[in-house]
């Protein structure tokens, strides 16, 4: 019996550790560092129907306990992902991968989802309705509950794969949107995408990011992520994948107590390519210390 096993709709994970979209490329980049088959799964880089070059440089800014990015959904487009990136991935990764799909129109989302759903390597779709860096990158689908629900419904009708919906924290009421996507048929919710922020270079008086604003990630946002996962857990019954500032095994336990069934690791991978490997190795030791038998026992444990 594997004490780290958790179940998400359509996928049983050997552990709850999932590298987050945009911080793990298409996976094979990390296989230079370790065998990525030890991961629960991973989410590949946000993909759109057509290729996107993203925003101008600089696209990265540093801040205390975190970073801002304004990449802007750079990706080679869904067909190239299928014909090239996933082929490369297949050589080094034998589990199911989660496909992060973005778009600017419903039609675009549906086309991409239809194409990617034909790939046997995909275990679930993560619907990205929360990229803060692209006006037409799907964010407007994530800010309004009715628009979000209508997109989820449409996507569900064109795929047999489970649909996880990645929500934006940049909203007034996260619970309202979570409930709406649940009603529309979402199989799980990923919480949270980055928080919108900025830095200013005091030597020039100008924003550091060429795009002015960017998405804040890293340990700085963990309390916000915990709070949102906690709030949403109380109000929906579908599983939540918790993401936001998780750096180590303790953070994983904390996020699962808040209500996450599995967790995504984002920024930690960028400063330490071995981050997920270390967390997976550290988890059993920490569980023993905390007298946790099965990790799935603690999901939402802070609510009792």
């Amino acid at each position: 019996m594997n004490n780290l096993e958790v179940k998400l709709p359509g996928m049983t994970l050997s552990n709850p550790i999932i590298p987050a979209s945009g911080c793990f490329g298409f996976g094979y980049e990390f296989s230079e560092y370790y065998d990525i088959n030890i991961l629960g799964s991973f989410v590949f880089k946000g993909t759109t129907l057509n290729s996107r070059y993203g925003n101008p440089n600089p696209r990265i800014a540093e801040t205390y306990a975190g970073m801002l990015n304004s990449i802007g959904l750079q990706n080679p487009g869904v067909e190239e992902v299928i014909n090239c990136e996933l082929v490369k991935l297949k050589k080094v990764y034998h589990k199911k991968v989660i496909a992060n799909i973005g778009g600017s129109t419903e039609k675009e989302y549906l086309e991409s989802v239809k194409l990617i759903s034909k790939c046997s390597q995909i275990g679930a779709i993560e619907l990205n309705i929360s990229c803060p860096n692209v006006k037409d990158g799907g964010i407007h689908f994530g800010l309004n509950k009715d628009i979000a629900a209508s997109l989820v419904k449409a996507v569900k009708s064109v795929t047999n794969l489970p649909v996880y919906v990645k929500l934006s924290p940049n909203v007034t009421d996260i619970v309202e949107i979570a409930k709406a996507v649940e009603s529309a048929g979402a199989d799980a919710i990923t919480l949270i995408n980055t928080l919108i922020g900025m830095r200013i270079d005091i030597k020039t008086g100008k924003p550091v990011l060429a795009n002015t604003y960017g998405g804040l990630s890293g340990p700085a946002i963990k309390p916000v992520a915990l709070r949102m996962v906690h709030q949403v857990y109380r109000n929906v019954s579908i599983p939540i994948i918790g993401v936001g500032g998780i750096m180590n095994a303790s953070d994983v336990i904390e996020m699962m107590y808040a209500g996450a069934t599995a967790v995504q690791i984002g920024t930690a991978n960028l400063i330490d390519p071995y981050a997920c490997k270390s967390i997976i190795e550290d988890l059993p030791k920490l569980m023993k210390e905390l007298k946790i038998n099965k990790i799935s026992d603690i999901i939402g444990g802070s609510h009792i």
């Binding site: 945009g22 911080c23 793990f24 490329g25 980049e29 990390f30 230079e32 880089k45 070059y53 993203g54 440089n57 600089p58 696209r59 990265i60 800014a61 970073m67 990015n69 990449i71 750079q74 991978n269 960028l270 400063i271 390519p273």
Partner: peptide, 14 residues
């Protein structure tokens, strides 16, 4: 270029 990771994962330095 300003980098996030330095090893090709984040697309920050494209």
């Amino acid at each position: 270029e300003r980098m996030g990771c330095g090893f090709g994962a984040c697309m920050g330095c494209s």
